[in-house]
C-alpha cells in the first residue's frame, strides 16, 4: 500500500521531516534503555560503566518495600480479571442493545453513551464511601469492579458497533436452519465479531495494566499495590533517590504493553473502524 501511495509524491522529504520531529522522543527512549544498564558521571551524557545493579529489584526486595513480583502479579490479576469482566458483559449487553427488541432500549443506549463521557474523577469520593461500606476498600476485587464498571460503557458501545455490522439475515438464516437463538449467536455471530472481541480484550488489558488513579486511591496498601502505584511510591520516596532504578522499573512495566501492542496493533485499529470491513 505504501508503495502505491507514494507514487504521486516523493517520500523522502516526509521521512526527513518526521525523523526530525521524532528525534527528541527517540533519544529519550534510547536513554531510558541505556541508563538502565549503565552508570553515568554527573554532568556527563556518555555512560562510563556497564552494570546490572539497576535491575537488582528483580531478585532482591528492599526492606519496607513490597516485592516487584507481588506488584506484577497484582497488576496481572487486576488487568486480566477486569478484562474478563468487561468482555463478558460487553459481549452480551452489546448483543442485546444491537439486536433484541427490549424495553427501554433507547434509554439504555443513551445511558451507555452518557456514561462513556463521564469523567471518572468526579466519582471518586462516592466510590470510596461505597467501597468502605461494603468492605472492599483496599482489596483488588473492589478496584477491579470499579475499573470494569467504568470501562463497560465503552466496551458495550464498541461491541454493539460490531454486532450492528453482522447482517440480520445471517441470524434469520440460522434460525431457519433450525438453530436456537443462543446457538445462532454462539456459532454464527460470535465468529464474525471476533476481531472486535480481540481488540476490546487487548484494549481493556492495556487500560488495566496502565491504570494508576484508581488503584492509587482504592488499593494503596503494600500487599495489593499494582505496578503503577509501586512506581509512584518509589519516586515519592525522597530518602533514597535512584533515577536509574526508577527507569529500570519503568522499562519493566512498559515491556508487556509494547509486546502486546506489537502483537495486536492491526486488531486494535479495528476498534476505531467500528468493525466495518474495509
Amino acid at each position: 500500500m505504501s508503495n502505491e501511495n507514494s507514487r504521486n509524491f516523493k517520500s523522502w522529504p516526509v521521512t526527513i521531516i518526521l525523523t526530525v520531529f521524532s528525534l527528541p522522543i527517540l533519544v529519550m527512549y534510547l536513554y531510558l534503555v541505556v541508563d538502565t544498564f549503565t552508570n553515568t558521571e554527573p554532568g556527563s551524557l556518555i555512560p562510563n560503566e556497564f552494570t546490572f545493579e539497576h535491575w537488582r529489584f528483580l531478585w532482591e526486595t528492599e526492606p519496607g518495600r513490597v516485592s516487584i513480583w507481588t506488584a506484577t502479579l497484582n497488576t496481572l490479576i487486576f488487568a486480566s480479571v477486569m478484562t474478563a469482566l468487561v468482555l463478558s458483559v460487553s459481549l452480551t449487553a452489546g448483543y442485546a442493545l444491537s439486536r433484541l427488541n427490549m424495553p427501554y432500549r433507547r434509554f439504555f443506549l443513551g445511558g451507555v453513551l452518557t456514561l462513556h463521557a463521564f469523567p471518572t474523577v468526579t466519582l471518586v469520593i462516592a466510590l470510596f464511601i461505597v467501597l468502605q461500606m461494603v468492605g472492599l476498600y483496599n482489596t483488588l476485587i473492589g478496584v477491579i469492579f470499579i475499573k470494569a464498571a467504568l470501562m463497560l460503557p465503552f466496551g458495550i458501545w464498541v461491541m454493539k458497533g460490531f454486532y450492528d455490522t453482522v447482517p440480520w439475515e445471517i441470524e434469520m438464516a440460522g434460525v431457519q436452519d433450525g438453530a436456537s437463538r443462543f446457538m445462532v449467536w454462539h456459532k454464527l455471530v460470535l465468529p464474525q465479531i471476533k476481531p472486535g472481541l480481540i481488540a476490546l480484550g487487548v484494549f481493556s488489558f492495556l487500560e488495566g495494566w496502565s491504570e494508576y488513579v484508581l488503584p492509587q486511591i482504592f488499593t494503596p496498601d503494600a500487599d495489593v499495590q499494582v505496578l503503577s502505584v509501586y512506581l509512584a511510591s518509589l519516586i515519592a520516596d525522597d530518602q533514597n533517590f535512584d533515577f536509574n532504578l526508577f527507569k529500570s522499573i519503568g522499562l519493566f512495566y512498559i515491556m508487556p504493553v509494547i509486546v502486546l501492542y506489537l502483537l495486536f496493533q492491526n486488531k486494535l485499529m479495528n476498534i476505531y473502524g467500528g468493525g466495518s470491513k474495509g
Binding site: 447482517p167 439475515e169 445471517i170 434469520m172 438464516a173 440460522g174 434460525v175 431457519q176 433450525g178 438453530a179 436456537s180 454464527l188 465468529p191 464474525q192
Partner: peptide, 19 residues
C-alpha cells in the same frame, strides 16, 4: 417457531455464513 417449521429460505443477499 421458525426452528420447528421445517422451511428452507433463500434470502435476497444469500446470508451465507462467511466464516
Amino acid at each position: 417457531s421458525s426452528q420447528q417449521r421445517n422451511v428452507g429460505v433463500v434470502f435476497q443477499n444469500y446470508a451465507l455464513y462467511p466464516h
